[in-house]
Design a protein around this nucleic acid. Structure first.
Length: 591
RNA sequence: GGUCCCGUAGUUCAAUGGAUAGAAUAGAAGUUUCCUAAACUUUAGAUGUGAGUUCGAUUCUCGCCGGGACCA
């Protein structure tokens, strides 16, 4: 990659000139701004201190040396106010094109033996998926693919929260209000069906509390005494005792939910190599606590509860086992972390979890470290911000939650409307049309959620966020389709381009961008951030479109020019397609 | 009470301490005998506030104002 190469060559030149050793990683090398001549720029200020020279003098000496050492690589340089601008030799790009113009694996790294688990999605079985889950799913899937493209062996996993008091609420409500209705009998998607009973529970509970308060009971007391709540708590106890009737209903309702989730997962392309169920993992971790006690990492209070003191690390004292010996969330998480490691022999374990759990995840990693568990260092929280509406946070109580299925439907139907309005798809059959609407609608949604830095919270405006122009998925899809159309009509000559071939500025601009793809993939993996790929692809598509408008490819000035442009176009389409695939977005041949 | 995060054009997002703070969208003005106008070209518009560190601060430090999350 150019940036890395330049850094190495600079280090060698500096060693030649001044006899000093530099770490190439420290050089500030960045793409040259368009208003200056050159392709890559070195900021000289940071070097002049240790070399005790002036920027101008250093720039001149370094520039000369670089060209002298690498005549095939740098063609010229200039210095402006402490910035050394280097121009890369055209031949570098010609050989890049000659070897990679039709290379489908361009930029990717072959698989190595490093194993990583990415846990994402992690739904509750009493609520259908919503907008926030979509961000989680898109991120988790994408980061998995990005890691694969960088040579990692990735295991995608999911932990389903399928037990606890909230599940019992849906079950109680179903028993009370359903008259035996099922998803089949009502034609509803299973997750929505069960979710509705969860809502019904809350309505009924609220009514009962109000009634008790009306009779003069104090509110806090009424909340505990409401019959429906007491019934629910009893059910949780029965569940834990293994009451077969309760378990049977629990299994039945969960199956409805899973069937519903599967439909959504299929539409959005989420998949998992391993699904963990909390009902099977919630007892894990107690052994580890015993082990921690023996090593004095934990301590027991007089009432028998077990704690860890993290105040020295700026955190609190944290409960890990209740006085009755039952576990808390962190206990099972410690256990599950261990189990993942045992099950798959992973080097790293990534958790795609919302940033409201930053504290929890910090505690988890720290505890694992203190106990001396071997996998502790490999634990990484890929923390992402909430998706908010213009009116603020989504609140289920106020009915402002954006449902995932509804949103996907809407995106697809808008994609259909746009497509039909443009009237370019007359030669598509009905199946192809449906596939295209899916590709565009879901592509727009995924791109919208992935183009933002994961760490930051983002705002989704239902009216304005659904766009098919500008910095969007469809823009990139369109650019890809455009290129494919050209490639269908013109044949690429496999013969190598002559090293003498010259470029227009915009052609070189494209080649520089294409060359950066591998670097972008590495950056995305290192920072666990798909958005750098989104930004990059948009810039590439934008540059291609300017190029396309300015120069004819089919009717180029010469055959040599035509072949050059076709090969640039070919590699551009490969990068657009490959990059979008890493975001989970398909690119059409025609649209 | 404690810990942490965030404030950039009207709006949604960018910017490893580097050149004149980039895009998109909305606004204004253009481009179609020619490879897909979901495109292209031109134009106007922003770092919450006050200090400090530095050759240089959107970025680092501290105070204030405003918003959010978590812990007990």
């Amino acid at each position: 990659m150019l940036i890395g190469l330049i850094k190495e060559k600079v280090a060698i030149a500096l060693k030649d000139l001044y006899g000093e050793d530099f770490d190439p990683k420290e050089f500030p090398v960045s793409p040259t701004k368009p208003e200056f001549t050159g392709n890559y720029t070195i900021v000289l200020f940071s070097l002049i201190k240790s070399l005790k020279t002036s920027p101008d003098k250093l720039g001149k000496e370094l520039g000369e040396k670089l060209i002298q050492n690498n005549t095939q690589f740098f063609s010229e340089y200039n210095i402006i106010k402490g910035f050394l601008n280097l121009t890369i030799h055209s031949e570098y790009f010609i050989s890049l094109l000659n070897t990679h113009f039709d290379d489908k694996f361009f930029g990717k790294t072959p698989m190595t033996s490093k194993r990583i688990m990415v846990e994402y999605s992690s739904p509750n079985t009493n609520k259908p998926l919503h907008l926030g889950h979509l961000r989680n799913n898109f991120l988790g899937w994408s980061i998995s693919e990005i890691l694969k493209a960088n040579g990692y062996n990735v295991v995608k996993s999911c932990i389903v929260n399928d037990r606890g008091i909230h599940i019992c609420k849906s079950m109680i409500a179903w028993m009370r209000f359903s008259n035996g209705a099922t998803p089949e009998s009502t034609g509803m998607k299973g997750d929505h069906f069960v979710g509705d009973f969860y809502v019904k529970f809350n309505d009924a509970y609220k009514a009962e509390v109000e009634e008790l308060v009306g009779k003069g009971m104090e509110k806090g007391m009424a909340e505990k005494e409401a019959p429906i709540m007491k019934e629910t708590q009893q059910m949780l106890l029965d569940w834990e005792k293994g009451d077969e009737k309760v378990l049977e209903l629990w299994r039945r309702m969960n199956q409805w939910v899973y069937a519903g989730f599967d439909v959504t997962y299929k539409r959005i392309g989420s998949d998992f190599a391993k699904t963990y169920y909390e009902s099977e993992t919630y007892l894990l971790g107690k052994d580890t606590v015993e082990f921690g006690l023996s090593k004095n990492v934990f301590y027991k209070k007089d009432d028998g509860s077990v704690w860890i003191d993290l105040t020295a690390d700026g955190l609190d004292e944290k409960l890990v086992l209740r006085k009755d010996g039952t576990s808390v969330y962190i206990t099972q998480d410690i256990g599950l972390a261990q189990k993942k490691y045992d099950d798959f022999n992973i080097d790293q374990s990534i958790y795609v979890v919302g940033d409201e759990q930053n504290y929890h995840m910090k505690v988890l990693k720290l505890i694992c470290k203190k106990i001396g568990l071997p996998y502790a260092d490999g634990i990484h929280h890929l923390s992402y911000g909430m998706v908010e509406l213009p009116t603020g946070k989504m609140k289920s109580r106020e009915g402002t939650v954006v449902d995932a299925d509804d949103l996907i439907d809407e995106m697809i139907s808008i994609a259909k409307e746009h497509t039909l309005n443009l009237g370019k798809v007359n030669d598509f059959n009905p199946d192809e049309l449906d596939e295209l609407y899916d590709t565009i609608g879901i592509g727009a949604l995924k791109f919208f959620l992935l183009r933002v830095d994961p760490k930051k919270k983002m705002i989704f405006n239902p009216e304005e966020s659904i766009d098919f122009h500008g910095f969007t998925g469809p823009f990139i899809q369109y650019t890809h389709a455009r290129i494919k159309s050209i490639l269908r009509k013109n044949e690429i000559d496999k013969a190598e381009l002559s090293m003498k071939t010259s470029f227009m500025p915009i052609e070189k601009e494209l080649l520089i961008l294409l060359e950066q793809y591998k670097h972008i993939l590495q950056q995305a993996a290192q920072e666990m951030d798909p958005s750098c790929i989104g930004t990059y692809l948009f810039q590439l598509a934008q540059t291609f479109n300017s190029f396309y408008a300015a120069h004819s490819i089919s009717n180029a000035e010469s055959d040599e020019k035509k072949q050059l442009r076709l090969k640039i176009s070919s590699l551009t389409s490969i990068v657009l397609s490959s990059g979008m695939q890493l975001l989970g977005i398909k690119v059409p041949e025609k649209m």
